[in-house]
């Protein structure tokens, strides 16, 4: 188990070095997206329309933050369950997304797509929304403000802590843990 500090957009070689169980501190820009934002992006892809943002090398964080108190950049901002995004994820990986942050298991299709596209799935601690918010320095809405907490936000993070669950070789940390139990 290794520890890395990485900055987004992620470099292909750095992503391929990561192994399930490694700890990563991420800095740079993360894009937020949940169920409805995923649907809108994938509907555009399926319709052959251009995407409103360049996803190559980017990291998507599955989060719907709570509103910020005055003077703070963001409210609580922990990960939501990643499995709900499974139907949309392969299409976004095809567009160059290199990292996904959430909590919980991914489907076989997503794990295969991660390996195929050289991308990783990372877990943040669910339910520690304020602890994670302290690593988020800026937050602004980029797209789909009508979706409220489900809008696509841009986050600037510093040393945002995650654990590699699915790496580019097809390893799965949750399965490894279950096999040891």
């Amino acid at each position: 188990m290794a520890e890395y500090r990485l900055t987004t957009p992620l470099d292909d070689a750095a992503v391929r070095r990561l192994r399930a169980g490694d700890r990563v501190l991420l800095s740079g820009r993360l894009y937020t997206a949940r169920d409805q934002a995923h649907k809108r992006l994938v509907d555009l892809i399926r319709a052959g329309e251009p995407l409103p943002l360049d996803l190559s090398g980017q990291v998507i964080y599955y989060v719907g933050p709570s509103p910020a108190r005055p003077g703070l950049p963001i409210g609580a901002a922990g990960p939501t369950t990643a499995g709900r995004m499974d139907p949309y994820t392969p299409a976004l990986l095809e567009r160059g997304v290199k990292g996904l942050i959430g909590k919980g298991r991914r489907s076989r299709e997503v794990r295969e797509a991660l390996a195929r596209h050289g991308a990783v799935y990372l877990a943040a601690v669910g339910g520690a929304g304020e602890l994670l918010a302290r690593r988020i320095k800026k937050c602004s809405v980029l797209l789909y403000p009508d979706l409220g907490p489900e809008a696509i936000h841009v986050l600037e993070v510093e040393d945002f802590p995650v654990i590699v669950v699915n790496d580019t070789l097809g390893n799965d940390l949750y399965e490894e843990v279950a096999a040891q139990a």
Binding site: G78, G127, G129, E130, L131
Partner: peptide
């Protein structure tokens, strides 16, 4: 630790 911060700063424990 998260619970301590939330109580002290009057912010939600979890975004959900």
């Amino acid at each position: 630790e998260n619970a301590g911060i939330a109580a002290e700063e009057q912010v939600p424990l979890c975004q959900d």
